[in-house]
Design a protein around this nucleic acid. Sequence first.
DNA 1: TGCATAGGGTTGTCTAGACAAGTAGAGTCA
DNA 2: TGACTCTACTTGTCTAGACAACCCTATGCA
Lengths: 256, 256
Amino acid sequence: MVSPRMHPPRAVATPRAASTSRTGPGAPYTRVKQHLKDGLAAGQWPSGALMPSEAELVAQFGVSRMTVNRALRELQAEGLVERLQGVGTFAAQLHKVSSTLTIVDLHEEIVGRGHHHESRVHLQRSEPASTELATQLEVAPGSAVFHTLIVHLENGVPLQCEDRYVNPAVAPRYLQADFTRITPTHELFRTTALWRAQYSIEAAQATRQEARLLGVAADTACLILVRRTFTREAPITIARLVHPGSRYSLHGEFQP
Amino acid sequence: MVSPRMHPPRAVATPRAASTSRTGPGAPYTRVKQHLKDGLAAGQWPSGALMPSEAELVAQFGVSRMTVNRALRELQAEGLVERLQGVGTFAAQLHKVSSTLTIVDLHEEIVGRGHHHESRVHLQRSEPASTELATQLEVAPGSAVFHTLIVHLENGVPLQCEDRYVNPAVAPRYLQADFTRITPTHELFRTTALWRAQYSIEAAQATRQEARLLGVAADTACLILVRRTFTREAPITIARLVHPGSRYSLHGEFQP
DNA sequence: TGCATAGGGTTGTCTAGACAAGTAGAGTCA
DNA sequence: TGACTCTACTTGTCTAGACAACCCTATGCA
């Protein structure tokens, strides 16, 4: 980090008195944004519905149009609304948007959309590793590994089935976490040093168990992401993340 | 899509004369943003280096601070800079970046596996762009774009259905290529300068046409990758790549 | 009937000024 | 020396007004 610039004298604006704090999450544009997010989460505007115009929001919130405009522009960037010049602002198709293949915490992603996130823990235990799993996690065959099976719900709708095995040597306290309150991704982020990740993405029909957990028909096309992460020394975890294809897609961008 | 609201009369601003167009990619905030992006790409500011303050950019570009602020805010959102209130703007740590969904030529991939690659060209022509497509490729609606529909086979088994639209302004000789001998990806690599790519991955059941072309059942789960590539200036192509899920998966790796 | 146009809505953007809040160097005083 | 304030600088945000580009409907005219 380079040290900040010196401070040569320069004439600046004359100060005056004012009242309320404006920085931070209580800022007006944040209020407008949250109001719209809440409305979207509550189904106030179904997908494709026309949302209030900037002028209407200006009147409703008593703020300037630039402020409203910023809120809407950010919602657009987040993929929650679509805007057409000369036409209006529309509620976007639900959940299309997700983020990069960067490893993001699903919880943050869902909350970032202004939605409610819930985890249902179906399995949380230690079990002996199969031969293949032992190879993947680079542990001795038959030695204990941690296994969790969790379904994540967005606004009550199952979004992801997360079947995960964890290397106990790297995250010995993994099983003690309360996964209804913290996601495995977050827990592992917190306690291990991620260095590298490998993933593979495929489409397949859900297994019977997965279909049941996700509440979809057994032949639904699902997007399956298998991700293996590593510290600099050893594998941390291998996760099989199953999304019903109709409710999810991955987006990304890269620049060589 | 709900129909737009009615237009009750309301008083609006009085018009006045002005000169240059401000909307679009030539917009001042875009210029500022691009200038900084270019500088970052050129290594003008190494990771962590202090970048020009808003006031300096205001002076340099002759625009208002709000305009500069917007450019910097968007660069921050893109992860290219970090900003600290009261301190300054710093070049972000390089490539925290995502993934290596590197664009590989399918032909090389198949040949690399020691297998035989064959392309069946089902469509190769120029056609008028639909409104949405025109937007995606940033061409005038209704203007001609190039369209190819090709099925790639590995050892005689259909592996990918490639439905591709190309911007004629960027690759004017695209249609003259012999796609039984060279893949579109290779042709475009050869004739255009790839700068950026956007992709979206989802799972879905194949359409009837796709199922027929791929020789699979209509309800087969497929992995669909929609990829849009760009030169530094304009979109090159948008491709919809459909793989029968059972026969394909994507692999990647990244390092933070 | 059919076409051109005007009007009034919508988003997109820019400006100039202002205040708020945070940082850090430079002085001041005990 | 060490703790304090002062002050210049930074980013963060808001406002009111304006113009541009675009879209849709209604209207008037041929």
